[in-house]
Simulated scan of single mutants.
Amino acid sequence: MSNQAIPDLTPPGFTRSVDHGRVHSLHYPDGTIRIRHECHRPRDGRTLIHAPTLTIPGHVVVSTAPVTISPSILCEDCGLHGFLSDGIWRDC
């Protein structure tokens, strides 16, 4: 069995990364926020580091310090689902 690194598909260019435990919020100069996490994709069996963009409108950045985003966040690739509130990730 090979011990290959997990591919990191995070787009470059973010100016701030905040560790929230299971996820990181990546903040881009244009206001885009992506939720970086280890994504276990059942559709193809791959595991990768993935940072999907939040859908804005749809998600509201309530605060950037500490990071609070509403409503809950869902990764459609792996099913990661939770709330990012007061800088802490909470699984649903």
Results as ranks from 00 to 15, higher is better:
9 L>K: 07
51 A>C: 08
40 H>G: 03
80 L>A: 03
12 P>E: 15
24 H>W: 10
52 P>K: 02
11 P>I: 09
88 I>D: 03
52 P>G: 01
11 P>Y: 09
1 M>H: 08
91 D>Y: 04
81 H>R: 07
7 P>K: 05
85 S>E: 15
12 P>M: 06
90 R>D: 13
38 E>R: 09
37 H>F: 05
87 G>H: 00
63 S>D: 15
19 D>E: 15
92 C>G: 07
82 G>W: 00
36 R>P: 00
67 V>H: 01
6 I>G: 01
78 C>T: 07
71 P>Q: 13
44 D>M: 03
55 T>I: 11
27 H>Q: 13
55 T>N: 12
43 R>I: 13
77 D>W: 12
78 C>G: 06
17 S>W: 03
91 D>C: 04
91 D>S: 07
24 H>Q: 14
46 R>Y: 09
75 C>D: 14
74 L>C: 07
72 S>I: 04
37 H>Q: 14
42 P>L: 11
45 G>W: 11
44 D>Y: 02
37 H>Y: 09
62 V>D: 15
57 P>Q: 11
84 L>C: 02
28 Y>R: 05
64 T>A: 11
25 S>V: 08
54 L>F: 09
35 I>Y: 00
10 T>G: 01
15 T>K: 09
11 P>T: 08
13 G>F: 03
31 G>D: 15
72 S>P: 04
57 P>A: 06
54 L>R: 06
14 F>T: 04
42 P>F: 08
47 T>F: 04
67 V>P: 00
7 P>C: 05
34 R>M: 05
32 T>N: 10
31 G>M: 11
45 G>P: 02
39 C>L: 10
11 P>W: 12
47 T>V: 12
38 E>P: 00
91 D>L: 04
38 E>A: 02
34 R>K: 11
42 P>G: 07
